[in-house]
Design a protein around this nucleic acid. Structure first.
Lengths: 163, 163
DNA sequence: TATTGTTATACTCTATAACTATA
DNA sequence: TATAGTTATAGAGTATAACAATA
């Protein structure tokens, strides 16, 4: 049935809340983002790692992992994936022979840029129904909302797991 | 190290996008909501079911499930949980002896109201840093964003799974 | 003795598909 | 034969904990 519960909408239930809308919209956007980069052969976690490596060039797996909130065992698989497709490189760490120094290859940078284009296309689709000014206003309002996690600015806690 | 990557914030990376902020904030809010109702002994899926039953009193598991996008096998566990704690009731469906008619008990309504209080408290915390007028503006802007899923108005696709 | 990266095991969640009783 | 509800099995994803090499 395409209209199983025609009365289930908007009548009862909670009054419209920012929390519910953001929660729902956030899920949909995450899904769209994941679907969009999937053809590139990566998932959101890979994207987050590429993004971090852009500014953490040469740091160890451990350092990058803790900064992203990703535990060691998962870092292994993540870096394995990206290394096997030539996007990142493990080289010996100059100061600590136990550790690897992670770095992006040119191929990795291109991969990140293609993923960024996906983000932009999702943004365009998402905000296509409001004016440029309204988008700015929205951005400004959203940035003033109290963040729940203490995660640093560019980090998406959904891409980690740590409590 | 508590400041492993002090430069990873805001310098490089994508320009601020509604998509990224909404995705991140949505995750945090969902987490806060889940954490908030956990002491009540339910999770977001249970909450969604209670919310649906408020307006689908007497309908079958199948009907409620399809309206929420929840497959039959999971409906069983969900309804089992809520029934065992006396929040919903399975009675024989008058028209179809294969089916059950689901209904909320008074205890179920109280449970839903307590969960609603949690939603309100999260809303208050989330929007505590902006004025009442700004919150209205924000709500209005958010509601004008293009939704990705075709899900009906009150349905949160993160609480289902159906593609 | 502590730490980096790694591997192995266990657990949770979900999807798939069989099964029963009715229609 | 098709459908409502149920149950069983298997798969993906994750966390826990043990491991080897180095500090």
């Amino acid at each position: 049935m395409s209209h199983a519960a025609p009365d289930a909408r908007g009548l009862l239930g909670p009054p419209p809340s920012v929390a519910f809308i953001v929660s729902r919209l956030g899920f949909e956007v995450s899904q769209a983002l994941a679907d969009g980069i999937e053809p590139l052969g990566i998932d959101p976690q890979h994207f987050g790692l590429l993004r971090a490596l852009l500014v953490m060039e040469g740091q160890s797996q451990k350092a990058v992992g803790t900064s992203l909130g990703i535990p060691p065992n998962r870092m292994v698989a993540l870096v394995d994936d990206l290394e096997s497709r030539g996007a990142v490189k493990r080289t010996k760490h100059p100061d600590d022979r136990r550790a690897y120094a992670l770095s992006l290859t040119p191929k990795g940078r291109k991969l990140f840029e293609r993923a960024l284009e996906v983000v932009i296309s999702v943004e365009t689709r998402l905000c296509g129904s409001i004016s440029k000014d309204d988008r700015s206003r929205l951005l400004e309002l959203l940035s003033r909302l109290t963040s729940f996690s203490g995660a640093p600015d560019g980090v998406h806690p959904g891409l980690t797991s740590q409590p």
